[in-house]
Design a protein around this nucleic acid. Structure first.
Lengths: 103, 103
DNA sequence: TGAGGTTACGCCTATCGTAATAATG
DNA sequence: CATTATTACGATAGGCGTAACCTCA
């Protein structure tokens, strides 16, 4: 399980559409399709129910999606926080050194 | 940023020791070292302060670690929940089909 | 001087895009 | 028959282990 797969999964889940997910993430259809399939194989459950072109979330997928969206947004906010912290230093790149404790 | 890197980071952060992190994750020292370095490069901040052999969390690292641990445990619990759900079905593998809605 | 973190190097797997295939509306 | 998901296939980037290197206690 890798973030790449989870990003693919989230995008497909929110749109229930592989092609549009691919366009949004700037990769090919097949990359998305394979990424999601691999994730399903690893988890051992169907995240989507496929009927022809339709790709709809399974209950497993719905449940898992909640966790995935929470985890991804936590990581995104963590990343954003770091940017803000560095931004505030504005020139004092080693300010954080002074906060270290030694024993 | 991938989960692999975050798992490496968490392990090193909790132990402040690359070699023991590597042993725990059954990979080489170099894999851990590179994974963490790449993460730092992508984030643009030092997650650790290195002094000789010492590898101690920087304030950035401390902040980011909180997000990482939360995200990773959410994903782990999401995965565990799926296992429990499938376990409960016990033989009725397509039970979830009945919960689908159509329009 | 040896324990431990980093870097170099070659290998190899995993992912990608293109293109063919399948399915269906 | 056009649209869209999946599969096949070859190419390539990225991650790994080994081993050399460097540093410090």
């Amino acid at each position: 399980m890798e973030l790449q797969q989870l990003r693919y999964f989230r995008e497909v889940a929110e749109r229930e559409h592989v092609t549009r997910a691919a366009e949004n993430l700037f990769v090919s259809q097949s990359a998305i399709s394979r990424g999601v399939t691999q994730l399903e194989e690893e988890l051992g459950v169907p995240l989507f129910y496929r009927q022809g072109r339709a790709v709809v979330l399974s209950p497993y997928g719905r449940s898992f999606l909640e966790h995935v969206t929470r985890a991804l947004s936590i990581l995104e906010s963590g990343k954003r926080l770091l940017s803000e912290q560095t931004g505030k230093e504005s020139g004092n790149r080693i300010a954080w050194l002074s906060t270290l404790t030694w024993n």
